[in-house]
Nucleic acid binder design. Structure first.
Lengths: 338, 338
DNA sequence: TTGAAAGCGCTAACAT
DNA sequence: ATGTTAGCGCTTTCAA
């Protein structure tokens, strides 16, 4: 393996000189610089970033730990975050993790290795404890999730979220306002101590306020957030009942799969059954019919997360929490009952 | 920052002992092990992976460099690759890059830092040169792209792809077989030296063989692969012409957006206009109407890529190239002309 | 303008 | 079973 030392030898200079040209330091004579550059190119030298990171005392990098590839919602938020970070004079370092991985641990390792100044977590658990966040010794902000099921104090972490329960309630109230009373819900789980549970609570609340009794047979769990599970879930629901006139699906992707199941089950959307969801990913606007959904303010969420983090890094302020409202995108998937 | 040395001091043991418990070495007395573990937990110690990587001489890791978040096609291929790699006794290290980044450079850095045994590139340029691949000093395989516009010899790289041009031709011939003659095409660009150009060539070929003259007004470029651009592109095409009875769209996601534009333009799919695409992402099966598409064999592509790579790593064979066929998924988006 | 040398945090011989 | 020590490849003082 070619190292900086090899380059140095081939050029008859010292490693420090090579390092200098590698890092664009000014005090290198142009003759030497060119010679070094030439050799670097010839031998296809690529620096070892581990060695580099190890010796660096600080970086201006901020880490973004994203849970899961193929999360449309997250994917659409990243460019905004990247831009905001760049504008603040920092560099973004994105790191994907699998759904099984521990985002705090992964984040902590990143911080240590890359000497990060701060961390943004895109997706994570709603129930961290004091012990778990203690591995992070830099400011961090939870983007799109809070600590609803944990016992952290507000001063111990930052977050930028929507009010999942309230927005779910709004979604269901939107259906109620359109004359619906038999409203089903399609969700991951009623008790996942996470987003699904929160949105379920909002559903229950909306029904309660409207004086509609909770009909447990209209509550359909899917077990996960996949389109396949949603499709199957909706089919099951249809097998069990066909008297509901509307469904609240807790995520856009799930809603798209559910609409297909409704279609195949002979229920036209919105004629026979209205559908509303939460998220507002761009793809759902291309569906036929377009999905009515409460759009999460992705741009604001990203920018606000960055703002909070930078403020903390630059010691301008402490942990804070921001809750942003969604915006209704009225699509073709909800109709008014006459 | 807490290091292994701090832990050692607090435990009154040497750093090597701490290192041993960190790496689960057997020869540590259980009393010491527990004491160390306790302190590690107390101070929330997280190892520095740069230091670790630097000192390690080899790993059993294989890198996967993926171009772009939110590429549905790639996202659906990753689990397969991961499984296959694990089954072969290696570990997968996934690394995302932006569309502007140089995947070879990024891959080379990963290889150096993490001491990787090999690399799989998921998405990349079709025109690498000898010089560019020289930075990689481990076996690598290009998954889902070849070197159609470059000048590499077959012995210089490995690839697993579909035959883009042929499959595009098949897609168009499918439309022709269904009685269509006025067939439009929606693509990124006719000359991007990449996938779009290849599929365009297939389109032209199919027309030629069928004796249908190429009508340039039916060729619509979008400039990129986004849904937005596809939607706009289809609108433009509709403004210009409305006599085509079918469209070949070069990717599933683009097709979904295009179908929406057709719908808004008053053209029903498939009644007024048929649509066929290539890719076969899962979401397109939930659309109404379901998309007819040539499904890329994601599973086989992933597994074959891994097989080739492992074979090379274990010196069982040299570079090879595999071209896999697609499978037609007949959806509701194509109708037979009477 | 250049070189020598001291580490960054960790692992892995090699001793004991 | 445990400690000592020599690096891994690089950047960065400090001297020259």
């Amino acid at each position: 393996m070619t190292t900086i030392k090899d380059i140095a030898e081939r050029c008859s200079v010292s490693v420090s000189t090579v390092s200098r040209v590698l890092n664009d330091h000014p005090d290198v004579s142009s003759t030497v610089r060119e010679r070094v550059l030439k050799v670097i190119d010839e031998v296809h030298y690529v620096p070892n970033s581990s060695a580099r990171d190890l010796v660096k005392s600080q970086s201006d990098d901020i880490g973004l730990v994203v849970r899961g590839m193929g999360n449309f919602f997250f994917a659409e938020m990243i460019p905004t975050i990247e831009t905001a970070i760049a504008k603040a004079g920092y560099t973004l370092l994105t790191h994907q993790i699998n759904s099984e991985d521990d985002e705090l641990r992964a984040g902590a390792e990143l911080v240590r290795s890359k000497k990060l100044k701060g961390l943004i977590l895109l997706g994570g658990c709603f129930d961290y404890g004091k012990e778990q966040i203690a591995v992070l010794d830099v400011p961090f902000v939870c983007c799109s999730f809070g600590n609803s099921f944990g016992k952290l104090k507000e001063t111990q972490y930052s977050s930028v979220t929507i009010d999942d329960q309230l927005e779910a309630r709004r979604a269901v109230e939107y259906l109620i306002a359109h004359g619906h009373r038999k409203i089903a819900i399609l969700l991951d789980s009623t008790c996942d101590s996470s987003i699904s549970e929160l949105r379920y609570l909002g559903y229950c609340q909306a029904l309660k306020v409207a004086g509609i009794p909770l009909d447990e047979e209209l509550v359909q769990e899917t077990g996960n957030f996949s389109m396949e599970a949603s499709y199957d879930g909706m089919k099951q629901l249809l097998n069990r009942r066909d008297d509901f006139t509307a469904v609240f699906v807790i995520a856009d992707t799930m809603a798209m799969a559910a609409m297909r199941a409704l279609y195949e089950g002979g229920k036209r959307v919105p004629d026979d059954c209205s559908v509303i969801a939460i998220d507002g990913i761009s793809m759902s606007a291309y569906f036929v019919p377009t999905l009515t959904t409460l759009v999460q303010p992705k741009r604001e969420m990203g920018e606000e997360s960055v703002r909070i983090l930078i403020d903390m890094i630059e010691k301008r302020s402490k942990n804070r929490h921001v809750i942003l409202p969604t915006e209704v995108r009225s699509g073709e998937s909800v109709r008014r009952m006459k």
